[in-house]
Design a protein around this nucleic acid. Structure first.
Length: 558
DNA sequence: ACTGTGTGCGCG
DNA sequence: AAAGCGCGCACACAGT
């Protein structure tokens, strides 16, 4: 059964519906503070909570030590259905825009910064549910997915992801500020106030200035550095790391070192620590489906870009462990499965997929296999990738055909879909107008070249969309299955038992009591098998994981 | 003093 | 336009 929650003048209304969306008893009226208790009473394996927005309803439940088994996040589902080709003819797809189409109302659960304190008024009085009737919306969504089992699966997975994201925000990633601070002091020097260059950075800046014979050089200014490099006769077009690495000159080494340390300071230095780490936890806010392809994004603290170098500060609590799991070569495996390419799937069966590609004879080295595979999925046309892709075409025609078709559809301006039906956006009107314009009498060869270049660029996007998006679906299924397994064995408050604390596309971290860590490792592996079955049924593809039980995140290296 | 854009780099 | 996708963030710099 479903219980649809809505806010009504000062209270909450819970409307019971059957799985078909018809009434299943009288709506129940309760006072908002009673909600966590009500949810605790009513939550059960067959129950799904339907709400407009997980981020608005669930934190209070978590704060009260509760949790739910399953939910429907109407806002996330709406967004998928608005775009989805498989729901194109539905009433929902054609309905006028309303409050559910708007982005999630801003609601900082994490400590607000000084500036945000003044914004309290913005969300304190935010209108409950706007003009959206969640019961009607839920029914419209049921109708929209009635013809597509895949889409139903996607909505389920997305909603499960919303629960995971809320729980991870609630729990936070264990973060030892003292370890982080020690690392900063060792590499940058003693802590300095914001705006002051730390000692080590100042020393390196002096060396750079001396070797470029420019006493006033500001090493933080790319334009300044570029001018100085040119002045000493270095033919560079930018100050990017990859370009500098190619050059022989005494300034390069200290300059690159400066950039490395400056990056650490600005991205994950003391300011970051002050802003994001509270009571031994880093609380990044995950944005489910925040990337066009369906991948998650993170808002604040750059959680998805957590540098390898500071993962040593992620340390399990006393008596607890981190279980770190990473799916190996996820995207090529997903591509093999979704295209039904048996040869590519068997290249990855029980081993490193790139090694398997070498064993197939398509290329000579693992590095070549990797470059070629990435080239195929990203649309490389030049360099080593571009040269090697044709060899993959011969070895794995089905897989390569799938990405090639996706690219050609994109070049024509058509949408493409992931395995479960998440549908890519189409280019803006100006894209089509420019194309039309270029091929009229007014069109010049330069216009045509520009239009074709844009078309190829969009084709690279759609080519990658189908693979990246389907891999994101696998990851959702993986996490969703793992979460179910954790909930059923540890039904209490999230942080009382093993719980997810971190996620990056193909990698998860679970914080678990020591005595349960091995059990968790097994569950993670089984969840990966579940995910493969859910998406690809019996197709013989495997998703090997590297799983490590460690004290510090940095100890887990595949 | 604020806002928008470009640059550069971290992650997958 | 780093060959080749998807992001977020901080800073410099320019425009207002």
């Amino acid at each position: 059964m479903h219980l649809v929650l809505s806010r009504v003048d000062g209270g909450v209304l819970a409307t019971p519906l059957t799985d078909a969306g018809t009434a299943d008893g009288e709506p129940i009226r309760l006072d908002e503070p009673r909600l966590p208790a009500f949810i605790a009473e009513r939550d059960a394996p067959g129950v799904r909570w339907v709400w407009d927005d997980t981020a608005r309803w669930y934190p209070a439940v978590l704060a009260a030590g509760g949790r739910v088994g399953r939910c429907v996040d109407l806002r996330l589902c709406r967004r998928i259905l608005r775009q989805a080709l498989a729901a194109r003819g539905s009433a929902l797809a054609a309905a006028p825009k309303d409050a559910l189409d708007a982005p999630v109302p801003e609601q900082r659960v994490v400590r607000p910064t000084q500036a945000q304190l003044f914004d309290d008024a913005l969300f304190a009085g935010s209108a409950p549910d706007g003009d959206v009737d969640p019961v009607a919306e839920f029914r419209a969504q049921l109708d929209a997915v009635s013809g597509s089992g895949a889409l139903r699966l996607l909505l389920t997975a997305e909603s499960a992801g919303a629960l995971v994201a809320a729980e991870m925000l609630h729990a936070g990633l264990p973060w030892r500020a003292d370890v982080h601070e020690r690392l900063l002091e060792e590499t940058l020097g003693p802590r300095v106030p914001y705006g002051v260059r730390p000692r080590r950075l100042e020393e390196i800046a002096a060396v750079v200035r001396e070797r470029l014979d420019d006493p006033t050089l500001n090493p933080d200014s790319p334009a300044d550095v570029l001018r100085a490099l040119r002045r000493v006769g270095l033919m560079v077009t930018s100050t990017r790391k990859w370009e500098l690495q190619e050059i022989e000159h005494p300034v390069i080494e200290p300059l690159l070192e400066y950039k490395r340390l400056a990056r650490l300071l600005t991205a994950n230095g003391w300011t970051w620590l002050d802003e994001w780490v509270r009571d031994g936890r880093f609380h990044p806010k995950y944005v489910v489906g925040g990337v066009v392809t369906g991948r998650w994004a993170a808002d604040g603290g750059g959680a998805m870009q957590l540098p390898k170098g500071i993962r040593g500060a992620v340390i399990a609590d006393q008596g607890w462990k981190l279980v770190v799991a990473d799916a190996a070569q996820l995207e090529p495996r997903v591509l093999a499965a979704m295209s039904g390419d048996q040869a590519m799937a068997s290249a990855g069966d029980g081993r490193d997929l790139y090694d398997g590609v070498v064993a197939s004879g398509a290329v000579e080295t693992r590095q070549q296999a990797k470059v070629a595979m990435l080239g195929a999925m990203y649309g490389a046309t030049q360099g080593e990738g571009g040269r090697l892709v044709p060899r993959l075409v011969r070895a794995f025609p089905r897989a390569l055909d799938l990405v090639e078709r996706a690219a050609r559809a994109g070049e024509r301006g058509e949408p493409v879909t992931t395995l479960l039906g998440r549908t890519s956006p189409v280019p803006e009107d100006s894209w089509f107008e420019a194309r039309k314009q270029a091929y009229t009498v007014e069109g010049t060869p330069a216009m045509q070249r520009a239009v074709e270049s844009r078309a190829r660029s969009w084709g690279r996007f759609t080519r990658n969309f189908v693979v990246q998006g389907t891999a994101a679906e696998w990851a959702l299924a993986w996490m969703g299955s793992l979460r179910s397994r954790l909930v059923s064995r540890f039904p209490g408050a999230v942080t009382d038992g093993p719980h997810l604390v971190f996620f990056v596309h193909d990698e998860i971290v679970v914080h678990a009591p020591e005595e349960h860590a091995e059990w968790v490792a097994v569950q993670i592996r089984q969840a990966a098998v579940d995910a493969g079955r859910l998406l690809f049924q019996d197709f013989p593809v495997t998703f090997p994981l590297s799983v490590a039980v460690v004290d510090a995140y940095s100890e887990a290296k595949d």
